[in-house]
Amino acid sequence: MTDILCGILVMLARMAVVLAVVFGLAAYMILVERKLLGRFQVRYGPNRVGLFGLLQPIADGLKMLLKEDIVADGVDRRIFLIAPAIVAGAALFSFAVVPFGPTFAVFDRPIAQVIADTDVGLLVIFGLSSLAVYGVALGGWTSDNKYSLLGGIRGAAQMISYELALGLSLVPVAMMARSLNLTDIVSAQATLPFALSQPVAFAIFVVSALAETNRIPFDLPEAENELQAGFHTEYSGMRFALFFVGEYVNMILLGSVTAIFFLGGWNGPLLPPIVWFGLKVLAVPVFLIWTRASLPRLRYDQLMALGWKCLVPLGLANILVTGALLAAGR
């Protein structure tokens, strides 16, 4: 009985910690993005609210909460209201299978630093990231606005195309780790991270993950100079904030996933595992922000050509080569 109670308590604590950390990180990631983007453009970012603008996310959150939640005439109300929750929810759910460090023991009781250590973690993350497309597509579709609709269609098309390349880039990882369990994948990189042993897969993964998160240079669903704001044009207040936070939670998720699949997870010298993991997780969003400052947006046909004519064949070839090498090495 006490065992079950303890288990439930540990589980709840883990979920609370993960949720709090992820939300806090997402909020401050917005500040980091604004400040870093400012410095890339030779200006200061927000620096007025609190010391160095550190209270800016709180002020923004308060502002969003107090704003009117406008639901325009002619929208399909129920789906319109649910769509932002799908985006943010799918991103948050994915953290259930993300391991943050090796299992440690408290009072002889092993505590895994992951909420759900499933054997199909990779597939769960994939399924949830596909689910996020529904938020974008439905939000755009039910807004009853041509720009939103175009943004939603673009989002759906883009995410479906790049899902394929993303999946193909992770097949060699699963082949080399011989497991879909994220903890096992990390342990398989104890000596050499997959980014070094699978550079092509890593490159494909980074590009298609960039497209999956709808960020520059692949932010066509919300291309502001052609579609105003794309799929979230009609959203305001906290529902817009949900889309927004969802994007940043996605960035952190992408960071964790990249760290786990390619950067060797929490493996690293000297520093404790959780610090290594945090550093690797945060490096990816910083790179995404750097990308946003550096690259222009792709045209729609370029986006599709890159996905289907370049990344997918390259991913397939990479799988074949990896398979051949693994078979030869056996």
Partner: peptide
């Protein structure tokens, strides 16, 4: 383009407070 933005990161901001 990445290098260009990186060099700008270490320049003093031109903003007047």
């Amino acid at each position: 383009s990445y290098a260009a933005t990186l060099t700008h990161l270490f320049r003093r901001p031109v903003t007047e407070q």
